[in-house]
């Protein structure tokens, strides 16, 4: 495997993807406690129904955490300069999220050589749940 640096990557290169098991109620309960986000929409089906949904939905930040894992599997966390995510669709029980990423730009920012990576999280049907734009500094 070649060394990862600014010169060894090019636009349109993919970063290694990450596939997660289907989202379960148990996983959302653990994330609820671990994240400190106790919004009942994610764990209480009665509250979800009162909110006009059929069932609980995953925390958007759980999906962003999967995207974050994809990034830190690829580069050291201290290389990440910014991480911007737009949530596109609700993630439901049973959805299996796969995150993918692609280098879309190489640029110089001050004295740093950077790449912009577009990250996407989609379910088993290909429905996109979140899109991220990430700036990473490379040596």
């Amino acid at each position: 495997m070649s060394v990862l640096n600014y010169n060894s990557v090019k636009v349109d290169d993919n970063i290694p993807s990450l596939s997660m098991p289907p989202v379960t109620r148990h996983a959302l309960a653990i994330y609820c406690g671990a994240s400190g986000d106790h919004n009942p929409l994610h764990v209480d089906i009665d509250f979800a129904r009162e909110s006009g949904l059929d069932d609980v939905i995953a925390h958007g930040m759980l999906i962003m955490a999967y995207m974050g894992r994809t990034l830190t599997n690829w580069v050291s966390q201290d290389a990440i300069r910014s991480f911007d995510t737009r949530f596109q669709a609700m993630t439901r029980i049973g959805d299996a999220i796969t995150t993918t990423g692609k280098i879309v730009e190489k640029f110089i920012d001050g004295d740093e050589r950077c790449v912009r990576v577009e990250v996407s999280a989609a379910d088993q049907r290909g429905e996109v749940k979140a899109l991220g734009s990430v700036v990473i500094a490379l040596s």
Binding site: F47, G52, H59, G60, M64, R81, S82, F83, T85, F87
Partner: peptide, 12 residues
Amino acid sequence: PRALHGGQRFQY
């Protein structure tokens, strides 16, 4: 009940 997380950006 009607609030959703639309976007999240971090600068490190």
